[in-house]
């Protein structure tokens, strides 16, 4: 266990930046989002959750796949260069790390998505334990221990010191690089912090949420329930819940004509949008109820069915905070819980 004083963090970041890009929560126009660190940028480790989850670092909201250029009679395709420089993501909370693991199951499964794989291969994740979890957090329900994040490096902000513990060889390699700034630290201080955090998590309003009835083989029973018809009504069909969610994986492939060439890019898409499933045969989910049902069935039923029980939700609570109509996955789970279905 090592540690560094809070006031030296700026030099720590500068040092990390020498060997590659560094992404960490930065406050821009009073909102905290993960962004590339420039010297002197106002990083913010106090805000518990960034608005947009750090999945953006590994699975960007839009990235160019390839560029086509008409050359005489043939088309020349130049694929986008895969990321090949190492980078570090600092300040990721345990739920977001869980989110990345969920995405790994999607993008690293056969056939591998090389854009995502290249970023995962070159990225080192430094996780930060949550100091003061908020009332919308429910990561415990999905078996994530906010006090003990499992990533390349785990860090704890206690008092005005940052405690640092490498967990993987990537973590070791990074620790090696910045060892000059780190000093040895007492394990016990971190243990006390962990117990304190876990005590608070117990008291969170959503901590006793039960996922009973939600698993891979609940497809038929949940699909035909009449509850969906009441729950979906206030939904505005906007994409907020999907775009802030650390585990949403859906994307669209579109073209952009730059005049001299055509860039085919991939960008996040939301299953809540009305023409998400509009394809050659038409649209098989025309009503907002079907789309609303699909979102929660995918997170709590279909994904577990395809990924031996792992849910596609990590309980970060961003959809609880940001939904304009105050709908979210917790209210859905509770609604089915009360009805006893």
């Amino acid at each position: 266990m090592l540690k560094i004083a809070k006031k030296d963090l700026a030099s720590l970041f500068a040092l990390i930046k020498e060997s590659g890009e560094l992404y960490l929560p930065v406050k821009v126009a009073e909102q905290t989002n993960f962004a590339a660190y420039e010297d002197g940028a106002e990083f913010d480790l106090d805000t518990l959750k960034s608005v947009k989850s750090p999945k953006d670092v590994f699975f960007p909201q839009s990235e160019t796949l390839y560029t086509c250029k008409n050359e005489g009679k043939t088309i020349k395709i130049t694929p986008e260069e895969l990321v090949d420089q190492p980078f570090v993501v600092f300040g990721m909370k345990a739920c977001d790390v869980g989110g990345i693991e969920v995405l790994d199951r999607v993008f690293l499964s056969d056939p591998v998505d090389s854009f995502y794989a290249a970023r995962r291969a070159h990225g080192t994740i430094v996780a930060l334990a949550c100091h003061e979890p908020e009332e919308s957090c429910f990561c415990k329900v999905f078996g994530i221990d906010a006090a003990e994040p499992v990533a390349d490096v785990a860090t704890w902000m206690i008092g005005d010191e940052l405690y640092w513990k490498a967990l993987t060889e990537k973590g070791e390699a990074l620790t090696e690089k910045v060892s000059s700034l780190l000093t040895d630290a007492d394990e016990q201080v971190v243990e006390n912090e962990k117990t304190a955090i876990r005590a608070i998590i117990e008291k969170l309003p959503y901590s006793d949420l039960s996922l009973e009835g939600w698993n891979g083989d609940a497809v038929a029973e949940k699909f035909d329930s009449k509850l969906w018809n009441e729950l979906y009504k206030p939904c505005l069909a906007c994409g907020t819940c999907t775009f802030v969610c650390p585990t949403c994986q859906c994307y669209d492939i579109k073209d952009y004509n730059t005049g001299s060439s055509v860039q085919r890019y991939r960008c996040w898409d939301s299953c809540m949008y009305s023409d998400f499933t509009m394809m050659a045969h038409g649209n098989n989910r025309t009503s907002q109820m079907q789309r609303f049902r699909q979102r929660f069935m995918h997170k709590l039923v279909y994904f577990p069915a395809n990924n031996d029980g792992t849910y596609s939700c990590v309980g970060c609570g961003r959809c609880v905070d940001k939904c304009p109509a105050s709908l979210n996955i917790v209210k859905v789970i509770k609604a089915f819980g009360e009805k006893g279905e």
Partner: peptide, 9 residues
């Protein structure tokens, strides 16, 4: 983040 919440509300 192009979520269209402003438009849909």
């Amino acid at each position: 983040i192009r979520c269209n919440a402003c438009r849909n509300v």
